[in-house]
Write a protein that binds this DNA or RNA. Sequence first.
DNA 1: ATGGCCTGATCTTCAGGA
Length: 259
Amino acid sequence: MRIATWNVNSITARLPRLLAWLESSGTDVLCLQELKCSTESFPAEALRELGYESAVHGTGRWNGVGVVSRVGLEDVVRGLPDGPLYEGVDEPRAVAATCGGVRVRSVYVPNGREREHPHYAYKLSWLAALAEASREEAAADPPFAVLGDFNVAPWDEDVWDIAAFDGATHVSEPERAAVEDLLGTGLHDVVPRPLKYDHPFTYWDYRQLGFPKNRGMRIDLVLGNDTFHSAVKDAYVDREERKGKGASDHAPVVVDLDH
DNA sequence: ATGGCCTGATCTTCAGGA
């Protein structure tokens, strides 16, 4: 089974590339983030024509997550139990489903903006709620993984130049500790292969020639429990999908499972 | 060949992204 995660930065803007990529990559299950659409306006019919079912949690302009699968889609859960609100709003940042016997949770972790910003405290609370929501399935036997845009680079090597991130979000100790706590529930960081250069970055800023200069970050993660991790045959970042006109600023992370 | 931001909405400017 081939499972992937991809922050598409608008499903509407990315639809032609998404449909082509699903076919060319042979992906069975895809976790999506930053749909930037409502559940009602998600292009479920176009995906159905390719043989994929969809589970979507979106409210409009911001955020939005989904799971699409051609190997079944059951037991959909939208949101996080006891997830924090931001400015009184329960934002669509998580959706879980069971696809072909594998439980997946697609997540779009809050950005945090600045360390002093209320969004940063929200980010830490959201990650804590994610750990609680995942605790049971992480420790259980059936294959389970949390996949998505974590907006945290777990290690200094996961950004192109740690010196450029002095005082920034995404690399701070509390954010990394929150991801470490999530791993502590029984999950393993499935680090993908880069297809070029020496580090598997998954995001490159649109600005200032970020991609051509390989100024990237590894912030899209696949965290799998023991059963999931043991079944991993291969994992890589499909950087080809970051190329050219009409690309998302994130590349898909692809995992092949012996399952 | 990978090229100096992109997306959607409050829509000709702006918030948000990371």
